[in-house]
Design a protein around this nucleic acid. Structure first.
Lengths: 175, 175
DNA sequence: ACCTGAACACCGTTCAAGT
DNA sequence: ACCTGAACACCGTTCAAGT
């Protein structure tokens, strides 16, 4: 059922992912969904966990950049993935894992490292959500007076962000 | 009318900010709103611009941290402010100003500085949205097995993020 | 245990028609 | 120029009742 929701999300996007539509997809009455999940929020939280399922377990041997890229790619792998994760973040069952993996990659256990890990996660989420937002606007044809492809510069922007954090982490760790 | 929308947003939050409710607030029929704005999206874009209206004009004399704090505070000044700005970012009429102010604060005009400015903006948005998300969850009473106040550590996380970018900018500029 | 049927209280948007 | 009235095609959620 979560799989069906994830497929539907990728097909139609978050605004059109309704309980009624999902029910139709499953050839079931809308009310049937409420036996499995008590609300749409809960269903979306389960979807969010599935989206982040591919990010690696915490592992100090993993470089920060690699973990960051894995999280970003997980978010971008499904339409509106970043927004789904963001909107269910408060009931984070699985977002915590992503943050733990970042923390491990930073190699630290200090509260300063925890703050850094949180900040990096917030950056990746903000970056990915804004990117997907632009991708959607572009597909609608809402062209801004801006440069061509919104996706084009985004790799540089992501690198700039992760680079800033990586630089900090390098300067801290050689102790 | 945008003022009324902004007030209503702050009162009831984005999920309950409907065209019909706004119309009721203005003592008018829902359809009347569509003479002024062609869609809810457009109305929200105008609201987003109002939210960011208090961020300072681009000024190289302004320190990066100050501009970053100004943007964050603008987003946090209204309930769900970050989400509204994010969701209308693609048709950014006013988000561009915030990014330009960051760019000026970085002091640069290189494409590397542009990427950095974008990354900082993405971090601030992600940070603010996640914070407001937690604030809302807390008000609902959805307490996680986590530490007490979600707002408590957020100042440290924000400082960690901005600090990382500021450190980069310092190392680049003394040329 | 799992689902249907029917209802409740809503949505955004369009469009003829009024003033 | 600005608004009403009425409709269209939807929502999430609840709850008795069925199997």
């Amino acid at each position: 059922m979560v799989d069906a929701a994830l497929r539907l999300l990728d097909d139609v996007g978050l605004p059109d992912l309704s309980m009624r539509r999902l029910a139709t997809e499953l050839e079931v009455q809308p009310s049937a969904l409420y036996w499995h999940f008590s609300s749409k929020q809960e269903l979306l939280a389960a979807v969010a966990d599935r989206i982040l399922a591919t990010v690696p377990e915490p592992d100090p041997a993993l470089p920060l950049t690699q973990v960051a890229v894995a999280i970003r790619d997980a978010l971008l792998a499904f339409r509106d993935g970043a927004e789904v994760v963001m909107s269910t973040y408060a009931l984070r069952l699985g977002a915590r894992r992503a943050q733990d993996s970042l923390l491990a990659a930073l190699g630290g256990t200090s509260t300063a490292d925890e703050s850094a890990a949180d900040a990096i996660f917030e950056f990746i989420l903000g970056h990915s959500m804004l990117l997907q937002q632009r991708m959607h606007a572009q597909s609608i044809g809402a062209v801004l007076a801006d440069a061509a492809d919104p996706t084009a510069r985004s790799e540089d922007v992501f690198a700039a962000g992760i680079g800033a954090f990586a630089a900090l982490s390098v300067r801290h760790s050689p102790s």
